[in-house]
Design a protein around this nucleic acid. Structure first.
Length: 176
DNA sequence: TGCACGATCTCG
DNA sequence: GAGATCGTGCAT
């Protein structure tokens, strides 16, 4: 995808990433391709569910760069979450990749793709081991509230910023 | 320097 | 329903 694509708002990117192809070249040279099936948008400092809500820190720093970078972080001490930074410089937004193919769940995605802290700040436009390729994506998708952010006030908690590809056969399992 | 907790998953 | 497991942010 292009730099222009990633510079759009996270909501737009989250929606448009559905159906696109995520490439992952592992250390042994093997190549895996995945269809992105579920995403979530996190929209800047005012979004209480966004990590950047607490301001600029070493952890959130990459979200302040221009779109197209990778933002990863460890959650619950064991799962690496894969995010795509979006938007313009100093506009901290990101899209969480929650599902690829039939692998639903951000923790499982990180495990499947063997994501770790070395991916922090990786440039999707130049990386040789992870990047996203355009594909004719269907406009058929569901929206739903984001997962695991009950701490946010209703204004943000209730936003339907989770996007799920409609052809995803496991969708029913992801609705609570 | 310490501590509570999290954009989770698996097992029982 | 609880445990695994640890970096981060904020209080002490």
């Amino acid at each position: 995808m292009t730099e222009t694509f990633y510079k759009q708002d996270a909501i737009i990117v989250a929606e448009k990433l559905l159906g696109k192809i995520l490439f992952r070249i592992f250390d042994d040279g093997s190549v895996s391709k995945y269809i992105i099936t579920e995403t979530e948008a996190y929209l800047g400092e005012e979004d209480e569910a966004c990590h950047a809500h607490k301001g600029r820190t070493a952890r959130t720093e990459i979200m302040y760069s221009e779109g197209g970078k990778v933002y990863v972080y460890l959650i619950y001490g064991m799962y690496w979450m894969l995010n795509v930074v979006t938007g313009e410089v100093n506009n901290p937004q990101a899209v969480l990749i929650r599902g690829v193919d039939n692998i639903i769940g951000s923790g499982k995605v990180g495990r499947e793709l063997k994501i770790d802290k070395t991916f922090y700040g990786e440039d999707l436009l130049t990386s040789k081991r992870i990047f996203i390729e355009n594909a004719p994506s269907t406009k058929e998708f569901y929206t739903a509230p984001r997962v695991g952010i009950d701490y946010a006030s209703p204004k943000w908690r209730d936003k339907n910023w989770r996007f799920t590809l409609k052809i995803n056969p496991l969708f029913e399992q992801t609705i609570k």
